[in-house]
Amino acid sequence: MGAMKCRAWIALLVAGVLTEGCATASLASCNPADSTLSCCVKQHPLSPVDSCGASEAEALAVLTILKTAYEASRLAEDVEDGLAQLPEWKQVCIRNYVDCKNQGWKGGCYDCLRYCEGQHEWPFRACSPDRRK
């Protein structure tokens, strides 16, 4: 168990390793609340359909819940401390992603996060605050 699977899981869910380590390995392990399916997907995040017999929709649903849980842990009060270990450009991508989600920016926040990861800058034409009025 442990480090390798945790790393693979995070690599998948955080789209190409936005974090350098596995500070919260517990997110990758099964707990009593997990269904058989979600436990299986946690254990085989790179092959949820093949290994778990899940449909793509089921796999996506479980991975989305896991991703949200991971992101929520980053949104906790001490998120600034957690982010401080990352290179600044990664911190900026994550910060913009959090604002995109929390402030309801127009555009696909997660797609923009992936783009930011590749280009090291947030694509404001694709994802930006909308007008309220």
Binding site: V92, N96, D99, E121, W122
Partner: peptide
């Protein structure tokens, strides 16, 4: 200009919120 502008507006928006 694209990169610096992105950084500038992103920082400012975050502080604004």
């Amino acid at each position: 200009r694209i990169t610096e502008g992105s950084r500038r507006i992103g920082d400012a928006l975050h502080r604004m919120y």
